[in-house]
Computed example of a mutant assay.
Amino acid sequence: MNLAPRLPRPSWLDVVLALAVAGAGVVEAFGRAGAGPGQVHRPGLVAAGALLAGVILLPRRRFPVATLAALTALSALFRFAVLDDDYPLTAWQFYSNLILVHTVGSAATGRRARAAGAATVLAAYALLQTLPGQDVAEGLIGAIFMGVAYGSGVLLRRQTDRAIRMAERAAVAAEEERTRIARELHDVISHHVSLMTLQAGGVRMLLAADPARERERDLLHSVERAGRDTVEELRMLLGVLRDGRAPVGLDQLDRLAAPLRAAGLDVRIGTTGRPRPVPPAVGLAAYRVVQEALTNTLKHAGAASADVTVGFAPSALTVEISDDGTPAVAGAGHGLAGMRERVALHGGTLRAGPGAGGYTVAATFPLGS
């Protein structure tokens, strides 16, 4: 699992910093305009440089070394081609250099990237020392500020890398624990449910010779079927814990209908009401009802088409499956008992019987507000 961030786009902070640098440069350019020493002799050009510096700052987190190189080139242009020899360091040069040096320190992750970033920082510092009015004290002050900016960026990068490593280790540990829990649950629950199912089947076979025990045999057969269904659903649900697979639900009805359509049954799926999330267990039960009803339609009803309607009401979920097959054959008890048990487990009701031109199965599941 890789939690390293992607290349970021300019954020609101980048925009604010760019506006701050450009604004400070424009204020200085026109606020200190004049012909004397230390004053801005060409305020229009200085303001234009401040605006360009603000634009250069915008992609600083995506291209930190390139933006600092571009700013250094802009400073060189103003130093050797535009500004007078007695003009000192401008505000936009000072602030934008500190911001970009910090960004370079926090962004360089590889050895080559760190070397390129350090070289660019040294080039920017060297250029600033060529400006008029720079002495030993100014050079030391500039070195301190740029060193602090670069060092704070390096510390930020190290903390970020540490946080990413810790998050990756936590994710791996959580995945391993989830797999362990899934394995234990599967071993314990599936074993006991399978054992109960086999025992119920054994008792049913012992009663097979007694004609008077037909009702008991039917009940035991229902227990067997419920046990097999439980083991199957446990395998599916525990797979979610094991590898994060999503359980089947109403959002997969189209996938369910695809092989039925290929087999010649025209399945049409529609919804009524405003769709909303339903509990996973309810969604699974509704999916199974639709699956069983469509399977019965395809196998036993001789239908050419079937309509599946999912209804979302404020307090209930309904699924209705209607076909144009033979009602007497479709309603011959194929899977209806299992569907009723599944729906009743969630406090719902199932209605099945002849409909308009075919057979209809409708299940209603109560939902909370």
Score class of each variant (00 low, 15 high):
Leu17Tyr: 02
Thr197Trp: 03
Leu45Thr: 04
Glu176Ser: 09
Pro280Ala: 14
Leu345Pro: 00
Leu284Pro: 00
Gly25Tyr: 04
Tyr150Gly: 05
Ile189Glu: 03
Ser75Cys: 11
Arg111Trp: 11
Arg288Thr: 07
Trp92Gln: 13
Leu7Val: 15
Phe80Cys: 04
His221Tyr: 08
Val319Lys: 02
Gln252Phe: 10
His186Pro: 00
Glu28Trp: 09
His186Asp: 09
Val310Asn: 01
Thr309Gly: 03
Ile56Ala: 04
Gly348Ile: 00
Leu128Met: 14
Arg183Ile: 04
Ala124Phe: 00
His334Thr: 09
Val26Asn: 00
Ser369His: 09
Thr271Leu: 08
Ala356Leu: 12
Pro279Ser: 11
Met1Val: 12
Pro37Arg: 07
Leu198Ser: 13
Phe80Met: 05
Val101Gln: 01
Ala76Asn: 06
Arg183Trp: 04
Ala303Glu: 02
Ala18Asp: 05
Arg32Cys: 04
Ala328Ser: 15
Pro275Cys: 03
Gly331Thr: 07
Gly335Cys: 04
Arg42Pro: 00
Leu220Tyr: 03
Pro247Leu: 08
Ala262Gln: 15
Pro314Cys: 14
Val172Thr: 10
Pro259Met: 11
Gly357Asn: 07
Ala285Thr: 07
Val310Glu: 01
Leu206Gly: 09
Ala362Cys: 09
Asp307Arg: 15
Leu185Ile: 07
Gly36Ile: 06
Ala304His: 13
Arg62Asn: 01
Tyr150Thr: 00
Asp266Ile: 05
Thr272Glu: 14
Pro211Leu: 13
Ser194Ile: 03
Asp210Lys: 05
His186Gly: 06
Arg274Phe: 01
Val21Asp: 01
Ala303Arg: 02
Gln134Asn: 08
Gly44Val: 13
Ala4Leu: 15
Ala24Ser: 13
Gly347Trp: 04
Gln252Arg: 15
Glu216Phe: 05
Val148His: 10
Ala66Cys: 06
Ala107Met: 06
Pro59Leu: 05
Ile321Gly: 00
Ile141Ser: 12
His192Tyr: 09
Arg62His: 11
Leu317Met: 05
Val27His: 05
Gln199Glu: 07
Gly117Thr: 07
Gly249Asp: 15
Asp251Gln: 12
Ala50Leu: 08
Val193Met: 08
Leu7Asp: 10
Ala362Arg: 10
Val310Pro: 00
Gly44Tyr: 10
Gln93Glu: 12
Gln93Met: 12
Gly133His: 14
Pro37Ala: 14
Ala258Trp: 09
Leu155Tyr: 07
Ala356Asn: 12
Val27Trp: 14
Leu57Met: 10
Ala33Cys: 06
Ile164Thr: 13
Ala212Trp: 08
